[in-house]
């Protein structure tokens, strides 16, 4: 259903392709600021239609600059970018009405009420119908749970409420793409859960969501795809499953017979064995041949008389994958 609706708008640009064209595509996108600082370096990013795309990277890695180039706020130094199949920033006026954005936190008019803030942003869009404005503003406020506080001035709002209001501004109209830069920033755990539910709901409706976040488990929970940037360069992109699979799970055995267990495991081709207290862990063999079934490994251990207290494959979190990729965790890039 969504695939059909997504295919139609591709229309003129990609009539030849059988696939749905990507919602965001950049080729060699580069931004060098006037000071000479290379913020984004030859970025080739592809965001498939209908995905929930997590955009990861340490602070200062060029994520926000990339987002700003995508929505036409910053002129790229080199390279090209297309949004919904149209070149940006040239065709920005045509595509942006279909893009909702939350960039670097919300920005509001403190002297206006929440409702009037949304009215202001909506009247900035020349393609938004003023006749439906009130209804759409009300709906957006309702969607982020701000209806009760909609008459309050924005300066009286807490950070979390501002964040919700910023999100409401992105949802003023039905969008084909939502660009959300740190959408759960400043929210309490309950608010975060609501936002995640909202993102899933929007994605289920066929909206592509491009989500930048520092919270890796958040990305892991909601995203289908992800890309990682450091120092202005894209290191990797793909589905979240692929990324997590990139660093394999470790086999962990708890046993009083560590020596014997290590010997058996080594015999089965398990590498990188470490023994700590009563725990033996290692990486399952990969490469050519059939992958080793952990169940077979366990059976072999038991056959060898190893008393196994616990046995399992520790799932590698996206955070481990991320640290493995960037080699630095979340330190600020210099």
């Amino acid at each position: 259903m969504t695939a059909v609706t997504e295919a139609a708008p591709g229309g003129p640009g990609a009539s030849g392709a059988s696939d749905v064209p990507p919602v965001i595509e950049t080729r060699g996108l580069t931004k060098r600021f006037r000071g000479g600082q290379l913020a984004v370096d030859r970025l080739d990013l592809t965001v498939p239609a209908g995905s929930v795309f997590g955009f990861l990277g340490p602070n200062g890695s060029g994520k926000t600059t990339t987002i700003r180039m995508l929505v036409g706020l910053i002129q790229p130094t080199a390279g090209s970018a297309t949004l919904l199949g149209r070149p940006v920033p040239r065709a920005a006026h045509a595509v942006l009405p279909q893009v909702g954005a939350l960039i670097e936190g919300p920005a509001l008019y403190g002297h206006l009420t929440a409702r009037d803030n949304l009215v202001r942003y909506d009247s900035a869009d020349p393609t938004a119908d003023p006749r439906t404005r009130r209804a759409r503003v009300g709906e957006a406020l309702d969607r982020v749970g701000l209806t009760a506080a909609s008459g309050k001035k924005a300066k009286a709002y807490s950070l979390g409420m501002k964040q919700r209001l910023g999100l409401a501004a992105a949802l003023l109209r039905p969008r084909r793409l939502l660009v959300l830069d740190e959408p759960t920033n400043g929210l309490d755990p309950q608010g975060m859960r609501e936002i995640r539910a909202l993102v899933r709901e929007l994605a289920a409706d066929g909206t592509t969501v491009f989500l930048s976040s520092h919270l890796l488990d958040e990305i892991e929970q909601v995203c289908t795809h992800a890309a990682v940037m450091t120092r202005g360069r894209l290191i990797v992109q793909g589905t979240v499953a692929e990324l997590a699979a990139g660093t394999r799970g470790r086999l962990a055995v708890t046993t009083p017979d560590q020596g014997e267990a290590a010997r058996v495991l080594k015999g089965l081709g398990v590498v990188d064995l470490t023994v700590r207290d009563d725990r033996v862990s290692g990486e399952l063999p990969t490469g050519e041949g059939e992958p080793v079934d952990p169940a077979e490994v366990n059976a072999a251990l038991v056959r060898a008389g190893v008393r196994v207290r616990s046995f399992g494959v520790e799932r590698v979190s996206l955070e481990d994958a991320f640290v493995a990729l960037t080699g630095e965790g979340f330190d600020v890039a210099g």
Partner: peptide, 17 residues
């Protein structure tokens, strides 16, 4: 392009109008 994109919001399920 704009003409082709016109139908989309209706499909995605926007408010009336």
């Amino acid at each position: 392009g704009v003409g082709a994109e016109a139908g989309v919001p209706a499909v995605v399920g926007g408010p009336p109008g």
